[in-house]
Design a protein around this nucleic acid. Structure first.
Lengths: 346, 346
DNA sequence: AATTGGCACTCAGAACAGGTGAGTGCCAGA
DNA sequence: TCTGGCACTCACCTGTTCTGAGTGCCAATT
């Protein structure tokens, strides 16, 4: 039932409200936007928009504020992603260019993104579930402590401590390493995890020190592989929440908690549904299941050596969606290009 | 000029204010504390305390609030650290007991501490400057990427990527590793750093691929050792700041920023002056140089394999110092014991 | 059928006034 | 040195009024 102009009015309301933080009234709209009709006409349109629950009035005699649904329509139909300014582009390169391992690059990515958008920036580690293990390294630390290092072809390195209660000489160590390597090297993480489980299920063939060590090592490998499955996040800009605090009816506690938890945000990011361009937004109440009913997330997919993951921003529902879409998309593209360059250099 | 009873009054004011968040008046004091004198007498004492700038009145006809100086006197002379309840002790063990590498233990430590105190918990990594390098490991990842892994006797493991533009076979790799190891293994990090610098200053004797690789590797080792010097922090409980937000006149922005920065907090923690028991507090304006003039930090030293570091909590000036002292001290002791156990098992 | 000007109405928020009470400072007497 | 008493201050609560931004609705216009 909402007319075409009605939608333009919705757009105006969203834009002005994001700008001013104030509920926007019919008169303000005719002043700031060239609709060529009177305030009364706008009012009629606004009444319709309110019927459709796209906007709402905080109290009877006040301007209107977009609802969750209103923002949703805005991002789906009304917001064109405008390209970044040259200045912003150079800012991205300034942050991201230069060598560095995966950790480095991702940290710089979130810094750039929080700078660009003024929101909390989040990036998922590329999924390692499909990565393959390329190296297993064992280092004896003394006192029966054995450092187990796993390296994947995507460049992720992780270490863990195993307790083996014995010392090994070079030869034995090499053999233990060989036994463990056979299970993992060159195989996708998921498959490796399965083989490790099978191995653990076997009864101890021989209760030799070497066998005991192998079991201990495999056990921590299993733990580590489990962590590979639930990937991690890198974040920056939590402090910006204090700035936009007034946008949250309640406190920013749930947001800070989610940032510390990571798990929640991880799930949220993973479950977002992307459009054809890999862009996705999750708005207000849509985040209720995660305890973030007053926040929005804008994210984009990026590509790291074939593994897809997401990068995005988290902020108040009242955020500048077009700008954030643009920033997130630009950073995602840059990131993809960087990690692919890395790949070609391999 | 302040009498002995005057100090007791100060103590009462601090305690009640921490309890109630309300400025406390003379009448409230005689009601809640058994001073055996009248409100008028208390008023006289309060006037003296105000002269000494230990307390202040938000406005003329209102109760008093402790000043920074007042809190300082309180923690220095009036607060007895009361031991934790058995329930709290078991809570600590529940969190901390169990195996795990250094990272693990420290993460669990801050979780326990934030749980116990309701404040932001912080722990410094034990200083690695005096640690010795016990292993150097090189792993070729293909594409000229070489993973350099350093392990110290304190259990810290770190990795970094070097780009070497050549592939090596097992023998060459072993020789390169040997050359690098000679510089570092068995030596304190500080000394190793120096030898690395010297090596870099040498003109390339022979421009062989191996020499080039060694230089590239040594370069990233130098970077890594530099990072050893500026140790890191582990934190938890940032979300609790949202709860005690009203205790900060300004916003919690500076706090969140400091938490993200880490460097600031690192310095602050390092510069705190401990008493005989290794306990230290830094209160309100004393933190002004770090931009945290409205916050307090309570910290305790702990011992990890001979390397001293600190563990503490960060919160509003209006915090429960005795409880926090007790919690921080208990956790520090537990931590010391755990890391020493680890040591004896070596 | 869509648009418009006009108008009555609503209601949050500011401005003001009066009352209350918690709290103070001070002083004279115990 | 302590105490009761007393005048005084001032934040805060309450109630009242006023204002203005903004609405909803309707009859007239295009």
């Amino acid at each position: 039932m909402v007319t075409d102009r009605g939608l333009q009015v919705l757009r105006a309301i969203v834009q002005d409200f994001v700008d001013t933080r104030e509920p926007v009234g019919s008169k303000a709209i005719v002043e700031r936007h060239a609709f060529g009709v009177s305030a009364a006409t706008i009012r009629n349109d606004m009444a319709l928009l309110e019927d459709e629950e796209l906007i709402a009035a905080p109290h009877t005699s006040s301007g209107r504020v977009p609802t969750d649904k209103g923002y949703r329509v805005f991002v789906d139909h009304l917001a064109e992603v405008r390209p970044l300014s040259p200045a912003q582009r150079t800012a991205i390169s300034a942050f991201l260019d230069g060598p560095g391992d995966l950790d480095d690059v991702l940290v710089r990515t979130v810094r750039a993104l929080t700078q660009l958008t003024g929101q909390v920036a989040i990036v998922q580690y590329p999924s390692f579930a499909r990565a393959t293990v390329s190296h297993v390294e064992l280092v004896q630390l003394g006192g029966g402590r054995m450092l187990v290092i796993l390296v994947t072809d995507t460049g992720r390195v992780s270490q863990r401590l195993a307790f083996v209660h014995d010392e090994f000489d070079e030869n034995d160590l090499a053999r233990v390493r060989g036994d463990v390597s056979v299970l993992l090297v060159g195989r996708p993480v998921r498959e490796g995890a399965q083989r490790v489980e099978e191995r653990l299920a076997q009864p101890d063939a021989s209760p030799s020190p070497r066998e005991a060590a192998i079991v201990a090592i495999i056990r921590v490998v299993a733990e580590e592989l489990e962590e590979f499955r639930q990937d991690r996040l890198v974040m920056a800009g939590a402090a910006t929440l204090a700035r936009s605090e007034s946008d949250f009816r309640g406190s920013i506690y749930p947001l800070l908690e989610a940032i510390e938890e990571q798990v929640t945000l991880m799930k949220l990011m993973s479950e977002m549904v992307a459009d054809d361009h890999g862009l996705a937004a999750s708005i207000g109440r849509e985040n209720e299941p995660f305890g973030l009913g007053e926040a929005s997330v804008v994210a984009s997919e990026y590509d790291a050596t074939g593994a897809r993951a997401r990068v995005g921003v988290l902020g108040p529902m009242r955020m500048d969606y077009p700008t954030n879409f643009a920033a997130v998309r630009a950073v995602a593209r840059y990131l993809t290009r960087m990690l692919d360059e890395d790949e070609t250099a391999r």
